[in-house]
Design a protein around this nucleic acid. Sequence first.
DNA 1: ATCAACACGTGAGCC
DNA 2: TGGCTCACGTGTTGA
Lengths: 220, 220
Amino acid sequence: MSCEVPEQWLVAGDVLDKRDDDDEPLDDGADNSPSPPEPHAERKSRRGRKPGPRTAGPASSHVEAERQRRDRLNRRFCELRAAVPTVSRMDRASLLSDATAYIAELRGRVKELETEAKTRRMTGAEASQSPQHFSLEVRMVGRDAASLRLTTPAARHAQAPACLMAAIRALDLLVQNACVCRVGGPTVQDVVVDVPAAGGLLGEDYLRAALLHRLLQESV
Amino acid sequence: MSCEVPEQWLVAGDVLDKRDDDDEPLDDGADNSPSPPEPHAERKSRRGRKPGPRTAGPASSHVEAERQRRDRLNRRFCELRAAVPTVSRMDRASLLSDATAYIAELRGRVKELETEAKTRRMTGAEASQSPQHFSLEVRMVGRDAASLRLTTPAARHAQAPACLMAAIRALDLLVQNACVCRVGGPTVQDVVVDVPAAGGLLGEDYLRAALLHRLLQESV
DNA sequence: ATCAACACGTGAGCC
DNA sequence: TGGCTCACGTGTTGA
């Protein structure tokens, strides 16, 4: 496919100025029209026709433009070939179909990975939002003591007791007694904590709200 | 770019048999050489040259092959154009560069998503393997009671106390007193549990081994 | 020798 | 008008 440019069969006045910038063909204002017959160099896989009789006449602006168009196409083909890792053959047509297939493959991978990431994110969010499914009882014992009972419907949320402990500690409360048990096998996990000195300025509702807030924050 | 095929300027004996299967040009053994002049149909964006003088002579096997090659290239171009969503212009060259850029973009997305998935997997594995970093003390109190102390170096392993509780329960042990606290801010998490009736047939080493086993199993 | 692939020049439509 | 693009036929290679 002639990607290399071994300047071959150059003609006499080869200038090779070719400011062959790619990057959007929104250029080429009025630059290629000038006179220089500018023969095309660069060919490698010696296939195709020889540069021809090189009619340097002034009527060759068209052939020159066509030459530049061909060169640009060739460069684009080379770039595409460099971008596609699975090049079955060196054909142009094979390159095109390979590029199409590769794009489809990449699209499939992207979609697959995105769905996987989404699934992972969902499970993660579900696991971290599990405290929303907690049932938190706050029962005042006397005036400044409380008994908390945290129940989670699924035992896979094994971090629930620790979250409650952290929340209690974050509220500067002391734990007098704690009992964690699982009843009904892996379905229910129960935490009962007795907290002295949890009353005072802290009412039952405030205590519940603060603990819930902490629990939700803890499980981020 | 003439993707449609509105059969135009057909010549008299158009047969249109063209078993134009794509899928790897490893076919066409000796089929195009036969006599039928087979003019090419299908053109739409009336650009380019007219089909020419249609030299129906037997010397047109080459032009026919070239025609088929052109048609195949055109089809492949159309397929690629259908596969690339960001077609800036209708040029062939623009299509090629757009396809290259799109492939690069897809590659970047794939790499990004893969690294994200890998990171997520690593953190998950690390979090689940964290109990390996636990420090578990087992101190016998008398003959059939024990005091356990579980210390985790990182406080983000909030499920450690629950894991210990589950392990204790799995060993059918009772918890007399438990205390979970965090010292040094979020760096150390400490769990102290008193377990009566943990002696008997269960020695200290066996208790420690069983608890470690349970802890490692729990954290899968 | 045939065959496949490419490059070249050129005709022609379109803006 | 001219520039840009594509199609066409042909010349010329390599296998």
